[in-house]
Structure formats: C-alpha cells, structure tokens
C-alpha cells in the first residue's frame, strides 16, 4: 500500500520510495530509509500527513505520501 492510505495512529514500515532523487535524499537524511518504521500522527483527507520518524514529527504533502510504498507491521 501507499503511505497516504495509512490510517491515523498506524505504524508502518517503509518498503520503497519513488521520488525525485533530491527529495528522497532529504527524507533519508532525516532518517526515513527503506525498512524504517514510521507512525502516522495525523492526516488530511487528501493525503497530507504528519509522520513521526525516529521520534520527530514531520509534515508531508500529498505529493510525497503517494510516492512511498509501505506495509503494515
């Protein structure tokens, strides 16, 4: 499933990211790597989300959350 389909409060594991290299690196530098577990803190209908990565919250637009493949854990 894609990240934007994730429910509020769920913990997900990143499988793959299909983003422009620069955006992908930016996420990786923040600690969001393939295999990292993340939590959906909050979400809007359209797919903008607040995600917790390694204890820090990040807001992400829909254009990012729809390009990240995750699985439930």
């Amino acid at each position: 499933m894609k990240l934007y389909e994730g429910q509020k409060g769920s913990t997900l594991q990143v499988i793959h990211m299909e983003l422009p290299v620069q955006t992908e690196r930016r996420l990786e530098v923040l600690g969001m790597l393939e295999g990292t577990r993340i939590t959906v803190v909050n979400r809007k209908k359209k797919g903008a989300m607040i995600i917790k990565i390694r204890g820090t919250r990040f807001a992400m637009g829909q254009s990012i959350t729809e390009c990240i493949e995750v699985k439930e854990v």
Binding site: T23, M60, I64
Partner: peptide, 11 residues
Amino acid sequence: RESDMLLIELP
C-alpha cells in the same frame, strides 16, 4: 508543472 513538495519538521 509539479510544484515543490511539502516537507517540514514540526517541533
């Protein structure tokens, strides 16, 4: 055109 993507830390 695709615009900038939102990515920001919420302290």
